[in-house]
Write a protein that binds this DNA or RNA. Structure first.
Length: 225
DNA sequence: AACAGGCGCAACCGCCTGCTG
DNA sequence: CCAGCAGGCGGTTGCGCCTGT
């Protein structure tokens, strides 16, 4: 398949964004939204490619972006989710409100990776296979309660609508016994429940459910790295 | 004060997948 | 079913800043 050209046209600007460009992009999106990223720069009068605009908006200009250092709690969440999900930064980011995949990826490569590697070296001689297994098990059972899924939407009837996460995890289902067709992807599981943030049992069950979804969605090809 | 090396982060690149005609 | 397009994603790069010498 021929890949669509991107940013190849002469005259398109690259490199750091200026304040002026940021303001143009923000005001355009606030006015008209971003239904078509490719067309957006032209419509907004920006000499950027659509991808660049999208990246800038998602990673920097979005109003709900949380700036600043990662908290200890967030670090732990990232570590745990990375054990569970691998390098699926967008999936990890979707569980950390206000954080972007790029930010998490950078944070991982600059901080956590080194720290964990050092930690692994320290543990290498002492860790047995059994302990390793127990660690993995604990990860699945003790995912931090504060991880918030953006896939939950509470509607007016106090129902929680759940969109299965595998909608976004598209690689691991090739040989799956589950046929994740479009109809399956659109499947919505509704819990008629009193589910609340105080109800940690429900939250725990939820995380176990998620884990099961992850595991089953890949016909065990899902890798914990 | 000047320089070198390391670090952090924004941005780019290229591939993959889903959608549509 | 196929081809082309658009969006999304993860890997990588480049550059500015910081720190040590």
């Amino acid at each position: 398949m021929v890949r669509a050209p991107c940013c190849e046209k002469m005259g398109l600007k690259k490199g750091p964004w200026t304040l002026e460009e940021d303001q143009i992009l923000i005001s355009f999106i606030q006015k008209y939204g971003h239904e078509n990223w490719r067309a957006l720069p032209k419509q907004a009068g920006l000499l950027r490619c659509g991808k660049s605009c999208r990246l800038r908006w998602i990673n920097y200009l979005r109003p709900d972006i949380k700036r600043g250092n990662f908290s200890e709690e967030e670090e732990q969440i990232i570590i745990k989710l990375h054990q569970l999900l691998g390098n699926r930064w967008s999936a990890i980011a979707s569980r950390l409100p206000g954080r972007t995949d790029n930010e998490i990826k950078n944070f991982w490569h600059t901080h956590l990776k080194k720290r964990l590697e050092q930690h692994n070296i320290d543990l290498a001689s002492a860790t047995t296979t059994k302990q390793s297994h127990e660690m993995t098990t604990n990860v699945t059972q003790n995912i931090d309660h504060h991880i918030i899924s953006p896939n939950y939407y509470q509607d007016s009837q106090n129902m929680v609508t759940y969109h299965p996460t595998y909608c976004h995890d598209h690689q691991e289902n090739n040989s799956s016994s589950h046929d994740h067709t479009q109809s399956n992807k659109e499947e919505i599981i509704q819990y008629s429940t009193n589910y609340g943030h105080e109800d940690m049992t429900s939250f725990n069950n939820d995380m176990v459910f998620w884990y099961n979804v992850f595991m089953s969605s890949g016909n065990n090809t899902f890798e914990i790295s």
